[in-house]
Simulated scan of single mutants.
Amino acid sequence: MATTEEKFRAALMTLMERFPYDSISVQGICDEAGLSRKTFSRHFTCKEDVVAAQLKADIATPTATVLSVLSGAPFPDSSRVLLRHAYGAFYDNRAFYENAVHSLGLMWLSEHVMAAGKSIGTVPYEKDGINDETEMDFVVTLYSGIAATALCWWMRNHFSITPDRLVELVLKWVYDASPSKEMSK
């Protein structure tokens, strides 16, 4: 059975198949979900919160699950699986995100992807032996920012490549062929 939050997210996604994001009201979301405005207010403050919750459901929540399964895998290998999973979920709901981001903007998307990435926490980086809290915050922010930048680029380019190709580009330039590797030779 769907949770109340899931019902609101599904209602907004259904409405956005038929209407532009800007023309959808909170009351419209409530009506589509079959729930009251008071119930909406217990979970969200505005419809942007519903989009953010969907983004978190598509990216952060499944990524945390995948991380728990891949806890012993080398970072580049686990990154491939994590990015493919996150970018695949985003791609599956690309019409929803295109509609929302048309109104909310790429900066909104970037900020919320970074927040979703930061909500996953330090788990992917703990095995790297980072003991300094400031450095860990930097690393989590850096990699969340890379994921956000890749999604914004992909969206701006109308999903012109597959999720797998996007993962390959991110891994190539972040892990395999980054300029810093070449400069250290």
Rank of each mutant, 00 (worst) to 15 (best):
A2Y: 12
E6T: 10
E6V: 04
K7D: 12
F8R: 06
F8N: 00
A11C: 12
A11S: 10
L12W: 07
L12Y: 11
M13T: 08
M13V: 11
L15C: 04
M16I: 03
E17R: 07
R18W: 05
F19Q: 15
Y21F: 03
S23Q: 14
D31E: 15
E32L: 04
G34T: 05
L35R: 02
H43W: 00
F44R: 01
T45N: 14
C46P: 03
K47I: 05
D49V: 04
A53Y: 01
L55K: 00
K56L: 09
I59S: 08
I59A: 02
P62L: 06
T63W: 10
A64M: 14
L67A: 07
L67E: 13
L67R: 09
S68G: 13
V69W: 13
L70M: 14
P74C: 05
D77V: 13
A86I: 09
A89F: 09
F90E: 01
F90P: 02
Y91K: 01
R94D: 08
F96R: 03
F96V: 03
H102L: 13
L104Y: 02
M107I: 07
W108G: 03
L109Y: 03
S110C: 11
M114E: 15
A115S: 09
K118W: 07
K118E: 05
V123W: 08
Y125K: 10
E126S: 12
E126M: 11
D128F: 08
I130L: 01
N131T: 10
E133Q: 14
D137V: 05
S144P: 09
A150E: 01
A150M: 06
L151I: 02
W153I: 03
R156D: 14
N157K: 13
H158P: 01
S160P: 08
T162G: 07
P163F: 05
L166V: 04
W173Q: 14
W173F: 15
W173I: 09
W173L: 13
Y175E: 13
